[in-house]
């Protein structure tokens, strides 16, 4: 067994096992943690397949942002998962049908490679082996389609400005803490020395 094959089995076994645990775990927080484990192992599989950019993006975007968002949502929403699971058996037949269709489709995709191995050679956009993923993507995004990329950036800027303009309201009369202002007060402006006459008070 070669080393890449060994790692392939390790990553894929952990991916499948943790994917199973995502739907089997009783605690939803554990589910999300298993989901993160599945993501990390899938990233390992991508790395083995030579898609290093996709692997890193999977970790940065899915593990770093999406999964953490899931974690927040499950912790904050307090969904009663036990009651959600009540009608499981009722929906099981539909789930099985969907699963079988999905399995058949996967077999058809994999089968086409077995039946007609020459199909990979006639790809519309063949992969250039002399170029790394990141370089190829950069060539497309920042050179070939730089104009469209920047245009899409401007669209996002408009969306951001629009969301702020249409929703932000400046409330007047709200007291906010200004730490700089607080710490830069001197003793002279904060305290006052008053002469108190004995027996009279202020």
């Amino acid at each position: 067994m070669t080393l890449p094959l060994f790692f392939f089995f390790v990553f894929s076994a952990i991916t499948v096992a943790s994917a199973l645990m995502v739907i089997a775990a009783r605690n939803p927080v554990h589910s999300v943690l298993f989901l993160i484990l599945a993501f990390v192992n899938a990233a390992g599989l991508f790395m083995l397949a030579g898609a290093e950019f996709l692997a890193l993006i999977l970790i940065v975007v899915y593990v770093g942002a999406v999964a953490v968002l899931f974690l927040f949502v499950t912790m904050m929403l307090d969904v009663d998962f036990a009651s959600l699971r009540q009608g499981m058996l009722q929906y099981a037949p539909i789930g099985v049908v969907v699963g079988v269709i999905l399995l058949l489709e996967l077999l058809m995709v994999a089968g086409s490679f077995v039946l007609a191995p020459e199909v990979t050679a006639t790809a519309m956009v063949p992969i250039d082996p002399s170029m790394s993923n990141i370089k190829a993507l950069g060539e497309l995004l920042y050179t070939r389609y730089i104009f469209l990329f920047q245009g899409a950036g401007a669209v996002l800027l408009v969306a951001m400005i629009g969301a702020i303009v249409l929703t932000l309201r400046h409330k007047s009369g709200v007291k906010r803490q200004d730490v700089f202002h607080q710490t830069s007060r001197t003793r002279a402006e904060a305290t006052e020395l008053v002469k108190v006459k004995s027996g009279e008070g202020l």
């Binding site: 469209l148 245009g151 899409a152 401007a154 669209v155 408009v158 969306a159 629009g162 303009v165 249409l166």
Partner: peptide
């Protein structure tokens, strides 16, 4: 891209 940039700003 041009059409969307133009329209999105107009909607706002």
């Amino acid at each position: 891209v041009g059409l969307e940039l133009q329209s999105l700003a107009l909607y706002v």
